[in-house]
Amino acid sequence: MIQAPANPALLQAMGELFVSFPHCVALGFQYLGNEGRKPTLKVEWRDDLVGNPVTGVVHGGVITSIIDTCSGIAVTAHMDELETIATLDLRIDYLKAATPGKAIYCTAECYRMANQIAFTRAVCYHDSPDDPIAHGVATFMRDSNPKPMLLKEGGA
């Protein structure tokens, strides 16, 4: 059975908020929604996101950004109420080169929500999460900052 988000409205608001951050807008991240507590983001291939000008393969930094962002959203799927989080560490395994010209999807889940730390894992892929390009694990500090992430958006 798929576990529903702790607060579906909060998850939706956070998904939309996270992709509205300037750097996510600059990269063109889209929030595609969630399956239970697993959010999915998408980034279209663009020539200004390329890291290797010979092959046209997207820069690893784009993968890092989408995994960091999607994993953060996955943590918010476990929140009853809004709290701030901050990435503590992140590790990416580059399993194979992304295909130039194809959109990249990222699906993440928070597999352990402890009192102070949230633990996440994520995969990036083109067609199926079973055929991943990259795998990322991260930890987040919970309640990292007293300042709310939302000022005017009011999603929570």
Partner: peptide
């Protein structure tokens, strides 16, 4: 990334 602090996006720092 976070516009209220403001802070550089963590993914960008990684990139």
């Amino acid at each position: 990334g976070n516009v209220t602090l403001p802070a550089l996006h963590g993914g960008l720092i990684g990139g």
